[in-house]
Amino acid sequence: MARSDDPGLQVERTTLAWIRTALAFAVVSLLLIRTGRPETIVVAILLAMAGVITAAGLGLVQRARHRGRVTDFNQADPVHGPRAVLVGTLLTIVLALGALYCVWS
């Protein structure tokens, strides 16, 4: 069975990257309120709230999966999270479309 020379470090970097992504998602969501037009402030606030809740959920899920990943990585059985990537991608697209609506309408 293959073992890593730096057990857990790659997994730690991945977890930290997910947390940074979630934080950036929350910040961009909140900036939507500032850049939105007065006519679309309700939509901007709803999108911002959804973005912050989503960012918190992504961060918490990734932190919770961290322990399992460390164990699986040390046993040379990598764990992939395609659902997290898909959800993050779809929510980014929704947030971008909502931002375009709020800024340009």
Rank of each mutant, 00 (worst) to 15 (best):
I45Q: 14
C102Q: 03
R3I: 08
Q62F: 07
L91N: 09
R20V: 11
V70H: 05
M1I: 08
P38I: 03
A96W: 02
V43E: 14
V94Q: 05
L46V: 02
T21D: 06
L30A: 15
T71E: 15
V27E: 14
Q75Y: 10
L91D: 06
R37V: 01
R13V: 01
L97N: 04
R63H: 10
V11Q: 13
T89K: 10
R37C: 04
R63G: 06
R65Y: 09
S29D: 01
A17K: 13
L100G: 15
A50R: 10
P78M: 04
L46C: 12
Q75L: 14
E39W: 03
T15Y: 05
A50L: 08
A96P: 01
G88N: 07
G68H: 03
G57V: 05
M49C: 15
A24G: 15
R20L: 11
V28I: 09
R37D: 02
V43Y: 10
D6L: 13
E12M: 12
T89F: 11
P7V: 07
L100R: 14
M49T: 15
I45C: 14
H66S: 09
G81A: 09
R83V: 09
A22W: 03
L95K: 09
I41L: 14
A96K: 04
A26Q: 02
L97I: 06
A64F: 13
V52P: 02
L97C: 12
S29T: 00
G36R: 06
Y101M: 07
L30W: 07
A44I: 01
G98S: 00
R67I: 01
A44S: 04
V27P: 01
I41P: 00
T35Y: 07
A26L: 01
T35N: 07
L23I: 06
G98Q: 01
V52K: 04
L30N: 15
V52D: 00
Q75D: 13
L86E: 11
S29E: 00
V94K: 08
S105L: 14
D72C: 12
C102S: 05
M49G: 15
L9D: 12
A2L: 08
Q62P: 05
I33E: 05
T21K: 07
T35K: 07
V27I: 14
W104P: 00
V52F: 01
N74H: 09
P7Q: 09
V61Y: 15
A99N: 04
R3G: 10
Y101V: 08
T21Q: 10
F25R: 08
F73V: 06
L46W: 08
G59F: 03
V52T: 04
I93S: 03
W18E: 07
A50H: 02
A24W: 08
Q62V: 07
L97S: 10
T35V: 10
F25K: 09
P38R: 11
